[in-house]
């Protein structure tokens, strides 16, 4: 897979290109330039480290939307075994923009649910670019209620630009579909761990995001509105998306500081898309750690603590 570079990664890309050139020289002409290559590799790592240690919020937005960023279907085979995908809302649709199914996290059977944006054009269309319609959320709720019935912990993977804005979606009551998930997830008597793996876009993300733990990957984002949308409304200029991203505070670290999430999962150098195995292993380890804690709680206490957590949103220390 050839890495696609974002604009701010250009200096790294140039250096990497140089390294590749030297490598091919080395291969074709047998020139001994090992040392030179090694030096440049160290330099490239340093450069990556320095660029990534100082990312602007909107650069993180770009990383969260990176076309090669791992999606739920990339995580499932790396984190779980024995995954059986389950389909359908039972009434109207297969619900393809949200994946769901039962798998094992090591030995523990779990319900896995999450948005899938789609990688190639065909898949993107089939998945509706990961933008859920009411039937996708109905399907997700059906699976979550089944999980409660069979005492399966629920693991959600959030990655969506938002719930789909369309005529049919409104006709089928998009609002109620989202609201119903928030309502029901707050009382499900089984552990729920939600992980933002890419874009946490507004209500469409929150509809899979009510739980006992909320995790974010380091370069994922979570926001009430897209930076572009916010800019066009408040600045009257969609070009001010970078300022909006800054003001909204969409990055994992900023949100962690506000106490709205439990943990930030660090990504490999240069972002999750550079090493799927590594990010999957890290996320799995973090989820497992939290799940062990949650499985110790009796169902009633679990739901009580979830409720207290939800009620604490927006409350200030001084109030």
């Amino acid at each position: 897979m050839v890495l696609q570079c974002l604009d701010f990664e250009q200096p790294i890309a140039e250096l990497e290109e140089k390294i590749n050139e030297l490598r091919s020289l080395h291969a074709t002409h047998g020139m001994n330039i090992d040392e030179e290559i090694k030096k440049l590799e160290v330099q490239s790592k340093e450069l990556t480290r320095s660029i990534f240690s100082n990312l602007k919020p909107f650069q993180v937005v770009q990383l969260a939307r990176h076309p090669q960023r791992p999606y739920i279907l990339d995580y499932i085979p790396r984190m779980f075994s024995d995954f059986d995908e389950l389909h359908g809302d039972r009434h109207t649709s297969k619900g393809a923009s949200i994946i769901g199914g039962i798998a094992r996290l090591d030995e523990i059977p779990v319900m896995v649910i999450g948005h899938q944006k789609g990688r190639k054009t065909n898949e993107k269309i089939e998945r509706n670019f990961g933008m859920g319609r009411p039937e996708d959320y109905w399907k997700a709720l059906r699976l979550m209620e089944m999980a409660e019935k069979f005492h399966l912990p629920i693991l959600t993977f959030i990655d969506t630009a938002g719930a789909y804005p369309g005529i049919e979606a409104e006709e089928r009551n998009q609002s109620e579909a989202i609201a119903r998930n928030l309502f029901s997830m707050s009382t499900l008597k089984t552990p729920i761990i939600c992980s933002i793996i890419g874009e946490g876009g507004s209500g469409g993300a929150l509809a899979l995001g009510v739980g006992d733990r909320l995790l974010m990957l380091q370069y994922s984002i979570y926001s009430v509105i897209s930076p572009e949308g916010c800019a066009s409304i408040l600045w009257k200029n969609a070009g001010k998306a970078s300022e909006a991203a800054e003001a909204l505070g969409v990055t994992a670290n900023r949100i962690k500081k506000l106490g709205l999430i439990d943990e930030v999962v660090e990504e490999p150098l240069g972002g999750a898309h550079r090493n799927y195995d590594e990010i999957a292993a890290r996320l799995k380890q973090t989820i497992s750690k939290h799940l062990v804690e949650l499985l110790k709680l009796p169902a009633e206490k679990l739901v009580q603590e979830r409720y207290a957590r939800l009620m604490s949103y927006g409350l200030r220390d001084d109030s």
């Binding site: 928030l182 009382t187 209500g203 505070g249």
Partner: peptide, 23 residues
């Protein structure tokens, strides 16, 4: 809708109010 100037805190009010209604 949600109040953009309160960013994620405003989004989370959707979950907060819905949970209260569930109870």
């Amino acid at each position: 809708g949600a109040r953009m100037q309160e960013a994620l805190i405003s989004l989370f009010q959707m979950a907060k109010t819905s949970a209260a209604l569930a109870r």
